[in-house]
Design a protein around this nucleic acid. Sequence first.
DNA 1: AACTCTCCGTGCGCTAACGCACATACGTAA
DNA 2: TTACGTATGTGCGTTAGCGCACGGAGAGTT
Lengths: 252, 252
Amino acid sequence: MLAATSLLHNPHQNHLLASLPEAIFERTAPHLELIPMPLGEVYYECGGQLQHVYFPITSILSLHYVMEDGASAEIAGVGNEGVLGISLFMGGKTTPSRATVQTAGYGYRLKGQLMLEEFNRAGGRRSGALQNLLLRYTQALITQISQTAVCNRHHSVEQQLSRWLLLTLDRLPTNELTMTQELIASMLGVRREGITEAAGNLQREGLISYRRGHITVIDRDRLESHSCECYHVVKKEFNRLLSTNGKVKVPV
Amino acid sequence: MLAATSLLHNPHQNHLLASLPEAIFERTAPHLELIPMPLGEVYYECGGQLQHVYFPITSILSLHYVMEDGASAEIAGVGNEGVLGISLFMGGKTTPSRATVQTAGYGYRLKGQLMLEEFNRAGGRRSGALQNLLLRYTQALITQISQTAVCNRHHSVEQQLSRWLLLTLDRLPTNELTMTQELIASMLGVRREGITEAAGNLQREGLISYRRGHITVIDRDRLESHSCECYHVVKKEFNRLLSTNGKVKVPV
DNA sequence: AACTCTCCGTGCGCTAACGCACATACGTAA
DNA sequence: TTACGTATGTGCGTTAGCGCACGGAGAGTT
């Protein structure tokens, strides 16, 4: 059982870990702890203290803000391209948002203290490679959040759904996502019926197909052109900032 | 003339500069260059290279994204509490957004190279105080952007206007802002008429008063309770992360 | 095979915000 | 003072998205 998971899962499945220089990876790997991340689990609560940072490999986390009246809105997603817990090295320790598992799967966690030591480890006069990588990731995350703001302002539910599907798809190995419309709605902060309608349109046009809790993307290219520019902006920026020149490539 | 401006303006008017440890401030101050920042000036263009970072003192900058169809939306504002050009130390060098002057005034600029050297200057095994400060500011900025996203999703134009007025007011020495409704509308990414209506309501309720290009906040407290929670979330987070009670309160 | 739970489809009326068109009123500068 | 440019006020019709209510239908369980 354990052997099976070790075969199926390894730290390189997370793009950040994969693009660490050999030396750092070797130092860090022994401290990485593989954990299952079940759907709905809350890994980070508004104002709470984080003990670890999390590197998803097959799971996807959703950062969102829950309002006083209970409504909520997603701020960004974190999958195998990133890490949860940037506030640890940014120095704020906590943020006013929440992180829950949007797609069940596995991830690695690392004690915050260890991560910090490596983060602050200088390479000569220059800052360390981990710091460099994490800050670039943070900038990419900022772009993602910014684009969410823009998208929320100007684009239709259908466009936003397309964007969201594409971003989620990019973090998964298959072209099928296990996800109810209700859940998607709560991520995007819109009505469930709005998703039903938008998804219905996309299905009618042959871009996706779905059944009870499962959505399959059929025509990815057309879905992309159906989406707003926000998807491409985010995608481009992630590639630019985190292109793993050489090591593991991000599936485009 | 020059003497007059030197008397009127000094780097401590920028909260980040003001909370630097003495030693760093002394090193840096000689390289700070006071510049006027006229309304509408573009300090940062999508994809462009920054040569300097900018510390506003009496000016306010707006970070926004301009879409393919010309529409735009503000992502965040930067005033005397912050700095423009985080992508320089975050490692991305550029971002897909634009920064323009929203309120004319003065600011200091610093050569990017100099800032970087100080940023990477380690204090013993720990990272430097400037790094610490700038990263905490960046986290606060992330909160601001996140809250913009949430606000765009769920709150009315009137609430958003209130939030925006308050955030802008906090960056100014007076309770009057020089600003046309047209300009505010383009910041928020809504119709000009929408602002006319919302501002009319606020005026009727005695929270603000305005005339042709000038808005005065009369009852700040009531404006706050009229605004959505977003203002308070952002404000709290800035205070928490960058509280300048006294001078240096840097390494945590 | 029947049951049941949850997910999805659909049809209302309602409202906030949009887009457009045009009227008015302010303030600077001749 | 008058005149002109620009900012603001207002009134449409239109639309996307909301809130609610309920009907139907998978998919897993017993």
